[in-house]
Design a protein around this nucleic acid. Structure first.
Lengths: 198, 198
DNA sequence: CGCAGAGGTTAACCGTCGTTCACGCCGGCG
DNA sequence: CGCCGGCGTGAACGACGGTTAACCTCTGCG
């Protein structure tokens, strides 16, 4: 028999629901051209339907973008917490866990990385606030770890460090896969650790 | 007496021409909301005129964006070349010169940094091509230096390294000046060098 | 003096795009 | 069987925003 969990997983990965297809296609298009430059007709066409069909699945174009950004922020915030918790008590090990996590995410989802920080400004205020809250949570996970690694440093210093490391790792969309994925993972992780502990 | 060079300098810095005012205001607004989200009326209002007045100084909104991005790319490409040339023959010194240059630029022009890589996609094809060519030139300056510092590494490796360092340094808009400027410069330069040489 | 041209203004034009409407198809369920 | 709800379509609507047009006002200069 098939549990609902298996069914959901199956639906997501193997034969995604129309809703899920739309979200994926939209993420890709938004990343390439920017959310304001892609029309609802473009998104529809990318999944083989006409523009207005979108409204059977989302209440508005903004709602699509909102769900996209909220999912990303949640995945990062949750993932960050989990990885640190699983890494034991050593701050250096926690940092490595965070770096691995972020590098994996950035290599797996370059499109989401792009949309995440480019199109936040085109999100209506209430949703934007929720996204920013989640982002802040994720940053704070990093700041906490960095603060333990640099006992003398003030919080602002650690926050700037965190953002700098994000920028470093999230450069993946710019250096489109000329290097193999394992080599890329290794390189970024090494650079990130060096930067974070410098 | 006042040489034409002094006059130009004076005009740019002290009492900028309307054209220059517009370009500055537009850069600020574009950075905050994204070029597609700000109207010509907004830009006009920011310098105290109405929207259509813009067309006395620029042929179109796209032309404004184009000039903005071309200037940035040129400043970076030229500045990069100059700094390396002035740094002597030692690759490590050249790297430090490039890092200093990029950090200064990023701290001086956070708005331009944002517009530079977010709004390139909303630029018409011919101008976008020119901007990309300049960007490539700048990247190549970095790649050349990095290649000499990592004799074993292949070009793709050095290119990824360069983009990662850009991402690191260009994180300035995200960590808005909570840290003092000298401290920020120092921190970023140290992290960048550690990352570049890891 | 008077004209020219630079730089502004308001009003209008028009294409694009998000969104809604009215309708059609189809598959499951009573 | 017959109805109903999920999905999709093409057409139309309405707002917004870039661009143009027509007109006005200064300033400098022959």
């Amino acid at each position: 028999m098939t549990s609902t969990r298996d069914a959901a997983l199956h639906a997501d990965v193997d034969r995604p629901s129309r809703r899920e297809q739309i979200l994926r296609a939209a993420a890709q298009l938004f990343a390439e051209r920017g959310s304001r430059a892609v029309g609802v007709d473009d998104v529809g066409a990318a999944v083989g339907v006409t523009g207005p069909a979108i409204y059977r699945h989302f209440s508005s174009k903004d709602a699509m973008l909102a769900e996209m950004l909220l999912r990303i922020s949640e995945r990062l915030a949750d993932g960050g917490r989990d990885r640190v918790a699983a890494a034991g008590a050593d701050p250096a090990a926690q940092l490595r866990a965070l770096i691995d996590f972020q590098v994996e995410f950035a290599l797996d989802n370059p499109a989401l990385i792009v949309v995440h920080d480019r199109d936040l400004t085109s999100l209506p205020a209430p949703e934007a606030t929720r996204v920013r809250r989640l982002q802040r949570q994720y940053v704070e996970v990093w700041v906490t770890v960095l603060a333990r690694l640099h006992p003398g440093a003030e919080a602002a210093d650690c926050r700037a460090r965190a953002h700098a490391v994000f920028g470093l790792i999230n450069s993946t969309p710019h250096s489109a896969g000329r290097l193999g994925r394992p080599a890329m993972h290794d390189l970024l992780a090494r650079m990130a650790e060096a930067a974070a502990t410098a």
